[in-house]
Structures are given as C-alpha cells and as structure tokens.
C-alpha cells in the first residue's frame, strides 16, 4: 500500500494490487457455504500483504474447498484427492521465492491425504495451510468424514456414524517440528482474516483448521455450534491471534494461553467439551525444509558443469 515510512519518505510501489487482481472465476459453491468467507478472507490477506499474483500459487486437492484456486487470480494447481501437500511442497522445494497457499478439506487432508498431512507438517515448509473442515464429504454427496461426529447420519452411515471422530488438533500437535497450529470458524470474518494473516506471516507451515458450514449436507452441525457459543473457548495472548470486539462478543468464554506452551495446547485440544479458537501453538524458530531442499538453486550452469566433470573424474579409469 501507499504510505509514509518512518523516515518520512513516500513509499510508492510500482504495482499496486487491488482485490480484483486476486479474483478468478466466479465461485460456484452453494449459497451459504462457508467456503465463500474463506475465499474472501484469503483475498483480503493477499491484497493487504500486496503479494504478487504471479509469485503466488494456490494448491489444492479434490473436494468442494479444493475448487478455491479456480476462484483466485494467482497461479493455481488443482491436484489430486489428498495430494495437495506433496504438490505444494514440491513447488516450494526449488522455488522458495513462490508464496504457496494450500486449500484442503477434512476428507482430503485428514483421510485420503493423512500421510502427507503428517509429513508435510514435519517438513514445515513456509506455506499457509487452510483445512476447510465441514465434517462431511460434500462434492460426492454426504458421506461420513473423519471428523463427522458419532451418530451423524450420512449416505454411508444412514443409521449414524459408528465410530468417534478423529481429533485433528491433537494429531497435528503430536507431529515433530510443527510450528503454527490455529483453529477458527468461517462465521466470524475478522477472526478468520486475522488467523489467515498470522498463518501467512509465520515462516513455516501455518496450519489453520477452519470449522466450516455445509448448509446442504451438514447444516445441523454448524447450526448447533452457531447457536451455542458456550461450546467454544477463545484463546487470548499477546503472541496469539488479534481478537476484535466481534469475536469477544461472539465467544464469551475466553482463556489466556501462551502459544509457546505445547503441553497446555495439548490439554486444550484434547478437551472435547470446549472447542478452542485462536493460536494453539507457535514456534517461529522451527527449521523449514525448503532451506535444505533449495540448496544449490543459485549455482551457475558453468559451476554445475564443473561439478559434473568432477563427479565423472572420480569414476574415470
């Protein structure tokens, strides 16, 4: 953005990006779907951070939420079911200059892509990971998801889901080298925006689980949560997500939580009576894999050739 810097000089960017620069095709999600709000929040972060559309890549798997790249004006990669993270990590591996955003869902990330969820968080590459969790498979029309509550009726479990849901937060907090774990809801736009912005500014994988509405196949789940603020616990801390008045009003249960306290984060995540919102864990110093995987990117062709000749020399008889 335009503005005066501390030394009173005027800062004028050669290019200034507006929301229109981040708009892609018209979003085709159902009316009332929580995905719309996430898209808008992400576009606002892109605009406010003035990220170059050509250096931004939105990567997704398969599912309703994985349509997100199509609605952005950046580069995008709409990949395979469950595989957004390996693709995103590969993009970042030799192109650390690219700003990578990952859109994935509860089925995509916590079920078919489980192995990549675990390992990509361990790699901790610098990217923003948005998990749109609506506790249902929407694109394939109402099958049980790993986060569907027990007893919830779906087409694959018409008499109700038969096993307890996976807790994505405790699993994520158990992964070595995690660096940023946050949870938010789609129906509080300021908190959603602040959470995505914090995840993006964090160097490392910014994991954000977004509890989100599916008005078509899981309407009752979100309605129940929206109607009962006592189910939530808003986490407060100077190092945490900035909380505006709307969030404070909406979520009266609040607790001070230092995001560097992993043990307390576990406790909060494991307590299923209260759904924590905010930053559960933050470690700004966790090593990022792209700092290793991009070694040698700057090497000149002549240096590469010399290196290859040296390798050949060792095998020459």
């Amino acid at each position: 953005m335009f503005g005066l810097k501390a030394d009173w000089s005027l800062e004028v960017f050669e290019r200034y990006f507006t929301l229109g620069d981040y708009a892609g095709g018209e979003a085709r999600w159902c009316p009332g779907c929580g995905d719309h709000g996430v898209l808008t929040a992400a576009q606002r972060v892109l605009r406010d951070e003035q990220l170059h559309p050509e250096l931004t890549v939105a990567v997704s798997g398969i599912g309703c939420s994985s349509r997100m790249p199509h609605y952005l004006g950046t580069y995008g990669f709409h990949g395979l079911h469950g595989r957004a993270l390996p693709l995103a990590c590969g993009i970042k591996s030799r192109r650390p200059d690219l700003d990578v955003w990952v859109a994935t869902g509860d089925g995509d990330c916590f079920s078919i892509g489980t192995a990549h969820w675990i390992h990509a968080l361990r790699y901790n590459m610098d990217m923003t990971l948005m998990v749109f969790d609506n506790s249902i498979y929407g694109l394939t029309k109402a099958q049980t998801s790993p986060t569907s509550p027990i007893g919830f009726k779906t087409n694959t479990h018409p008499f109700g889901a038969i096993i307890a849901p996976l807790n994505p937060l405790t699993v994520t907090l158990g992964i070595t080298n995690i660096s940023f774990v946050a949870q938010t809801v789609d129906w509080n736009p300021p908190m959603l925006y602040e959470t995505l912005k914090a995840a993006h500014r964090h160097k490392g994988t910014g994991f954000v689980r977004i509890i989100q509405r599916c008005p078509v196949y899981a309407d009752s789940l979100a309605k129940e949560l929206q109607g009962d603020p006592s189910r939530f616990l808003l986490l407060n801390h100077e190092k945490g997500i900035q909380i505006d008045k709307s969030a404070s009003r909406q979520f009266p249960n609040q607790q001070e939580h230092d995001p560097s306290d992993l043990a307390n984060a576990f406790k909060l995540a494991a307590d299923t009576s209260r759904i924590p919102l905010g930053l559960l864990y933050w470690n700004p110093d966790a090593p990022c894999y792209e700092d290793l995987s991009s070694a040698g990117v700057e090497m000149t062709p002549h240096a590469r050739l010399a290196g290859f000749n040296a390798a050949l020399d060792r095998l020459t008889i």
């Binding site: 890549v57 990567v59 990669f77 990949g79 395979l80 595989r83 993270l85 390996p86 693709l87 995103a88 990590c89 590969g90 993009i91 970042k92 591996s93 030799r94 192109r95 690219l98 192995a115 990549h116 675990i118 390992h119």
Partner: peptide, 19 residues
Amino acid sequence: AEDEIAAIGFAIGSSYAGK
C-alpha cells in the same frame, strides 16, 4: 518422500514450478 505417491507429487510440484 513419505511414500511413492508423495515422491512423484513432490516432483510434479517442482516441475510445475519450472524445475
């Protein structure tokens, strides 16, 4: 990589990004 699928996915990501 963590498995064969991730191995090729990672490679495809890099290729897509121009490498």
